[in-house]
């Protein structure tokens, strides 16, 4: 199984994607390795969502958190899902549930929050990368909507960086499955 992109590494990827100068120091805390942003003045920030949202604001790319109230809520919901479900689960059963959830959600959407690219897409991509790498061709096709979304996000400028390019075959094998 490929190593999961976790904590500090993920936040550094996000920093680069946002075009921030970097230089932030990250640490991890506790048994579940919750990321912490250390700062010189004050207590610092704890938790992936908190730090990510902070970085987005720092880069003045608030649109990544959603524009309308509804979008903001959806972004929040998927970030929460990312932290609690994707990070929490590791069994095959959990993975299947996550992919199924996403597949249903993405059926009528291009991005997680609908028509705009948001922080939810970025973090979900980083969170799912190690799962997608290990999927078989059949599974990728079974979760077709996830595959399409994933392939789209990994081609979004600046997102993939050093992560491996997950290959999706162009011709479907089981065209009658849907």
């Amino acid at each position: 199984m490929a190593a999961a992109v976790r904590g500090a590494e993920e936040l550094e990827l996000l920093e680069r994607l946002l075009g921030l100068p970097g230089g932030n120091k990250y640490g991890v805390q506790g048994e579940r390795k919750v990321p912490v942003l250390q700062s010189n003045n004050g207590p610092g920030l704890t938790g992936l969502m908190t730090i990510a949202a902070h970085l987005v604001r720092q880069a003045r790319k608030e649109q990544l958190l959603g524009s309308s109230a509804e979008e903001k809520a959806v972004v929040q919901q998927w970030l929460e899902y990312r932290v609690t479900r994707v990070n929490g689960g590791s069994s095959k059963e959990d993975t299947r549930t996550i992919l199924k959830d996403l597949n249903v959600h993405l059926e009528d959407k291009v991005y997680l929050a609908g028509n705009i690219f948001t922080l939810a897409d970025i973090l979900m991509y980083y969170g799912l990368h190690h799962i997608m790498v290990d999927l078989t061709v059949q599974e990728k096709e079974k979760y077709l909507n996830v595959s399409r979304w994933f392939n789209h996000i990994q081609h979004y400028p600046g997102v993939r960086q050093h992560l491996s390019d997950v290959v999706f075959i162009k011709n479907r094998l089981y065209t009658n499955a849907h």
Binding site: V110, L144, S147, R148, N151, H152, H155, F168, R172, T175
Partner: peptide, 13 residues
Amino acid sequence: NDFLADKSYIEGY
């Protein structure tokens, strides 16, 4: 519909 099943756009990303 079939064409767009695994694509977000007609061409590219």
